[in-house]
Design a protein around this nucleic acid. Structure first.
Lengths: 110, 110
DNA sequence: TAAGACTTGTCATTATTTGACAAATTTAAA
DNA sequence: TTTAAATTTGTCAAATAATGACAAGTCTTA
């Protein structure tokens, strides 16, 4: 795994956009998105729609898998934040995810 | 923290219901919910609506805070599972949650 | 085999998210 | 400053997702 950003996904997009010297309008057009809405996304007032990840990856020549990791960790991080989930509880959540995986496995074998 | 269940929230409700020898119909009535939908909840085909946690706590004489922990860890566990988030990525997600907390703090002071 | 318990499917209703556009406000160059 | 581009904010209709309700099915078990 390459190092992931300790920022929100919106801030990450802004970073990419600035590095590539694009305006909101220019990037929004490439993403087939309204520039006003892209502004809200960068400012954390809306979520980036997952279906646009492939486009975003192409525009900035990023690996889709890494971009998706960036996205997923942002989403779960947001979930953790919004529910005030402590580290301790997060461990429980991870165990429960593991439990769901075993449930799914046993379903497969039937 | 008392020990939390390594089950889904639906399975946990079913456990509570069976311990207390209630039928789906009986518990559903207490929760002001359709028994068919409660069945789906117990079987993981629908989510339990968070707004009913206080009722659920009263019915089974549980502490709301602990029940909420059970609920939150289930929801985040589900999120982790559904996004195939690895332990490694989960650490990143936790860092991002932490980052959001600092963002929020600095917002407060302004 | 009948009654109660539970499950599944469907659909209208409700809530949430997204897209779109107008109208600010901010920024920065002239 | 003034002005044009860039960005932000507000609003609302449309799309999407979640929930409630009910009918009809299957599964126990007495």
């Amino acid at each position: 795994m390459t190092s992931l950003m300790k920022t929100t996904f919106g801030e990450y997009i802004r970073l990419l956009r600035n590095e590539n010297e694009l305006t909101l309008t220019q990037l929004a057009a490439k993403l087939d998105l309204d520039s006003a809405n892209l502004s809200k996304i960068e400012n954390g007032k809306r979520d980036f729609d997952e279906k646009r990840l492939p486009k975003l990856a192409r525009i900035f020549k990023l690996k889709l898998t890494e971009l998706r990791d960036e996205y997923v960790t942002d989403q779960i991080g947001k979930h953790i934040y919004e529910t005030n989930c402590t580290k301790q509880l997060l461990e429980v959540a991870e165990e429960k995810a593991e439990y769901r995986r075993t449930l799914n496995k046993s379903l497969q074998t039937q």
